[in-house]
């Protein structure tokens, strides 16, 4: 028997006044996946996440955690790093982490031990008795991240986790996320930064205007949206007649991109090239980037 999905959202709906923030969204998150929750600003990502974290409840529909409907006990198994995040400025670092860990149900001793361990991992063990407000911004972000994972959650929800992080910290956090994932923690990763999604996620759900408009494995989605483009690198010259048979859309220093039209296949192109004795160095299909898929699906301007 396969394990149940970590999170299964079944027709979740949430309205705020007249506005439908989440409109009957359904999806399943395979166990041990890193799920990218994508969508433009205001698409309903945060509303959806707040329901998964039990901060709010859906107006209708159900969300299942490991096969059980969400209940008051589940927040202890979820670690949530909101987009709008902060710390109590006047608390001490160690005390703060222990407080947040205890709210997640850890005993005082466990919370203290975990806090020490995680601070050491981020080279912050000297900061235990320092007030949060005296830490640099980067350190505060690390402390926020530690607070999210300190109770060893089964599910980690990260809303724009890398925003405002310098490259060193971003890399370190990415490594930790991957390590936690390797140890069996499910990760939901919400962002509108496509390059980060391509880098981290195996699986995406694309939300627009409260609706789930696309979901699946990243590789499959890119394949699904492939539109007969090929990239060719070659030695020598292209045959002069190629323009009459094929549409060359992009000349790059290394080669050309070719857009095939209906009825043409990659094999047709390849056969033609071989017949014309073109010296082929590279021939590959061009898959659309997630960014292109995203723009195509959302057809609104995406913030870079």
């Amino acid at each position: 028997m396969t394990p149940p999905p970590i999170i299964r959202v079944d027709k979740a709906r949430k309205t705020y006044g007249e506005k439908v923030a989440v409109d009957d969204v359904s999806f399943s998150m395979p166990p041990d996946a890193i799920l990218g929750l994508l969508g433009p600003n205001g698409a309903g990502k945060t509303s959806l996440i707040r329901m998964i974290t039990t901060i709010t409840a859906p107006d209708s529909g159900t969300i299942y955690f490991n096969g059980e409907p969400l209940s008051g006990y589940h927040p202890t198994q979820i670690g949530y790093l909101p987009e709008e995040r902060g710390l109590y400025k006047q608390m001490y670092v160690g005390e703060h982490l222990v407080y947040l860990a205890r709210l997640k149900g850890l005993s005082k001793a466990d919370a203290t031990a975990q806090a020490h361990e995680w601070l050491a991992k981020f080279d912050l063990d000297g900061q235990w008795t320092k007030p949060v407000e005296e830490l640099s911004k980067g350190m505060q972000q690390q402390v926020q991240f530690i607070a999210t994972v300190i109770h060893n959650p089964k599910l980690l929800i990260l809303d724009e986790p890398f925003s405002g992080l310098d490259p060193v910290n971003a890399t370190r956090m990415r490594q930790e996320i991957l390590r936690l994932h390797a140890n069996g923690t499910g990760v939901i990763f919400s962002t509108h930064r496509m390059e980060q999604v391509e880098e981290l996620c195996e699986f995406i759900v694309l939300i627009n205007q409260g609706k789930n408009i696309l979901e699946g494995k990243v590789a499959e989605i890119r394949r699904r949206f492939q539109d007969n483009k090929f990239h060719l690198e070659f030695g020598g010259d292209l045959p002069p007649g190629i323009n009459e048979r094929f549409r060359l859309i992009n000349h790059t220093p290394s080669g050309v991109d070719i857009q095939l039209v209906a009825g043409q296949t990659g094999n047709d192109l390849l056969r033609y090239l071989l017949d014309q004795h073109v010296h082929i160095v590279t021939f590959r299909e061009l898959l659309p980037s997630l960014n292109e898929v995203f723009i195509k699906q959302v057809s609104t301007k995406v913030e870079a």
Binding site: T53, T54, I55, G72, P75, T76, I78, Y80, L81, P82, E84, R85, G86, L87, Y88, K89, L100, L103, K104, Q144, A147, T148
Partner: peptide, 15 residues
């Protein structure tokens, strides 16, 4: 708590 932006973290654990 609201201006510190800590509140969303807290209410993901506490009602």
């Amino acid at each position: 708590e609201k201006t510190n932006r800590i509140v969303e973290v807290i209410i993901s654990s506490v009602k």
